[in-house]
Each structure stands twice: as structure tokens, then as C-alpha cells.
Computed example of a mutant assay.
Amino acid sequence: MIKINKIYTKTGDGGTTGLVDGPRRQKDDLRIEAYGTVEEANATVGLARLHSRDMARADHTLARIQNDLFDLGSDLATPGPDEGRKYKALRTTAKQVEWLENQIDIYNEALEPLRSFILPGGTPLSAALHLARTVTRRAERIAVALKRAEPEVNPEVLRYLNRLSDLLFVLSRVANGNGSKDVLWEPGRHTGETKSG
């Protein structure tokens, strides 16, 4: 079990931070940006859960996602090969990705077919899940850039973030009455207007 006694250490005052393994890195390093954005995604899922209390199954799903995102952040905070480590590195697994795929299939069954792209909105939970989805997509883009710079990055991290954004999209529709309250994009609806308002 992890034990944290002191909140501030002052070791990062010079602009560097420590990883699980390896030398300290600058706080604007791509790896730090990647797991920091994963942490931001996790926080937005936490905000969404403020609105999911009446949807026990979805809330349980989001709770598991939060825990798995912490695993994924630990994976990104542990660079380098796994061989020769004193302690086993925590890595995102194919089973975690498969669980997301299974959830997408289950939740998607009850949804009305899409007739257009969806605007973020509808219920508070749906809007919050759209925010979590877009932050997750940003985390994915940064992780892709990190993988290009540091090829040893676990490919399951990229797969997990990709599937997670899909699941959050599906859950946003579930939160909108299984799609009945989705706010649909109407292409070009206002392009012919000449007056404001």
C-alpha cells in the first residue's frame, strides 16, 4: 500500500519532477504532459460522477475507469524496459482494453441510431461526459506523440485511451435518455443569417 506523509517536498521547485523510475525530468517534458493530461481526464470523470448517482450501473463503470486511469498514469510515469527492474512495473493491459470494448457493446445496444453528429449537452451528466471524452482525446494525442519520441511506451496505453473516449461518448448518449435527448448538429443552420441573434 502506498503511504504519503508529506504533501510538499520542495524537490520540484526548480521545474523538475520525479518518475517511478529513472532520472528526474522537466515538468514540461512530453511524458509528464501525457500522464498529467490523463490525470486531468480522471478529474473530469470525477466531476461527471457528481451527476451519475441516480444511474448506479454507469456510476460503477465510471468508478472503475477512474481506478484504471490511475493505473495508466503509473504506466506512463514508469519509462524504460521492464526487464531488470527491482519491482514489477504497473502496466495497462489488454484485459483492461477488452473490458472497455465490452462496456461499449453493452451500453450501445439500447441506443437510438445516430442521425447526425452530436453537440455536447443535454443532461448535466451527458455534458460532463463529453468534457471527459474531449480531455481523454487530448491525452491520447499527447500519448501518441510520446510513443513517437519514446517507442517503448506501452501500446495498450494508446488503445485504452482510444476506447475510453468511445465509451465516454456512448455513456453521454445513455445519459441523454439513450439518445432521445441528444442535441444534434444541424450543418449550415445559421450560415445564411445576415443579422446577429
Score class of each variant (00 low, 15 high):
Gly46Val: 06
Leu47Tyr: 14
Leu47Gln: 13
Ala48Cys: 10
Arg49Ala: 12
Leu50Ala: 12
Leu50Asn: 12
Leu50Asp: 09
His51Glu: 13
Ser52Cys: 04
Arg53Trp: 09
Met55Leu: 14
Met55Phe: 07
Ala58Glu: 15
Asp59Ile: 06
Asp59Val: 04
Ile65Ala: 03
Ile65Cys: 01
Asn67Gly: 07
Asp68Trp: 07
Leu69Asn: 11
Leu69His: 13
Leu69Met: 15
Leu69Tyr: 12
Phe70Gly: 01
Asp71Asn: 15
Asp71Glu: 14
Leu72Gln: 07
Gly73Phe: 13
Ser74Thr: 15
Asp75Val: 06
Thr78Phe: 02
Thr78Tyr: 02
Pro79Gly: 00
Pro79Trp: 01
Pro79Met: 01
Pro79Tyr: 02
Gly80Val: 01
Pro81Asp: 06
Asp82Asn: 11
Asp82Pro: 02
Glu83Phe: 00
Glu83Arg: 04
Gly84Met: 01
Gly84Ser: 00
Gly84Asp: 08
Lys88Ala: 14
Lys88Glu: 15
Thr92Gly: 11
Thr93Arg: 07
Thr93Lys: 09
Lys95Pro: 00
Lys95Arg: 14
Gln96Met: 15
Glu98Thr: 14
Leu100Ser: 10
Glu101Pro: 02
Glu101Tyr: 07
Asn102Asp: 13
Ile104Asn: 07
Asp105Gly: 08
Ile106Gly: 02
Asn108Glu: 15
Ala110Glu: 14
Glu112Leu: 15
Pro113Met: 08
Arg115Trp: 07
Ser116Glu: 13
Ser116Arg: 10
Phe117Arg: 04
Ile118Tyr: 03
Ile118Leu: 10
Ile118His: 03
Leu119Gly: 06
Leu119Pro: 04
Pro120Gln: 08
Pro120Ser: 10
Gly121Val: 06
Gly121Asp: 09
Gly122Ala: 11
Thr123Asp: 08
Pro124Leu: 08
Pro124Phe: 03
Leu125His: 10
Leu125Glu: 11
Ser126Trp: 01
Ser126Asp: 12
Ala127Trp: 01
Ala128Met: 09
Leu129Phe: 11
His130Lys: 00
His130Asn: 08
Leu131Ile: 15
Leu131His: 12
Arg133Asp: 06
Arg133Trp: 05
Thr134Gly: 05
Thr134Trp: 13
Val135Phe: 00
Thr136Ile: 07
Arg137Gly: 02
Arg138Asp: 03
Arg138Cys: 05
Arg138Val: 00
Ala139Glu: 04
Glu140Val: 01
Glu140Arg: 03
Glu140Thr: 01
Arg141Glu: 05
Ile142Ala: 03
Ile142Lys: 09
Ile142His: 03
